[in-house]
């Protein structure tokens, strides 16, 4: 039987590593790469929610993250179509 703490500390590690990757990771000058990198802390936060049994919060978080990613990706593409420097 795996302990509860494994999931919590795995989530914490993913959140810290993912936020470092988003801030100073390779290739983050491209906003597309940076947006995709924000998914790593999102997965870590999902594990933390799972540890605490926050089911509704977890469901809403998954839905909100996917909508936010959609909005950001569409914004990046629209700005690039308009020829803005990113």
């Amino acid at each position: 039987m795996l302990e509860v703490y494994i999931w919590f500390y795995a989530g914490c590690t993913l959140v810290i590593v993912g936020s470092l990757a988003t801030v100073i990771g390779p290739g983050v000058k491209d906003p597309l790469v940076r947006t995709l990198n924000t998914e790593i802390p999102a997965v870590g936060l999902s594990l933390i929610f799972l540890t605490y049994n926050h089911t509704i919060a977890l469901l809403t978080f998954i839905a909100a993250t996917s909508i936010i990613t959609l909005i950001l990706l569409r914004t990046i593409v629209r700005l690039e179509e308009m020829g803005a420097e990113l």
Binding site: G44, F49, H54, L72
Partner: peptide, 27 residues
């Protein structure tokens, strides 16, 4: 735009601190 993407990370930090309360209030 990059700053806007990075505010996501700060939002994640806020959610961790709120979730740490661990009761229905946090949810």
């Amino acid at each position: 735009l990059q700053v806007l993407i990075l505010t996501d990370i700060v939002g994640v930090a806020m959610l961790i601190i709120v979730a740490a309360v661990g009761t229905d209030l946090a949810e």
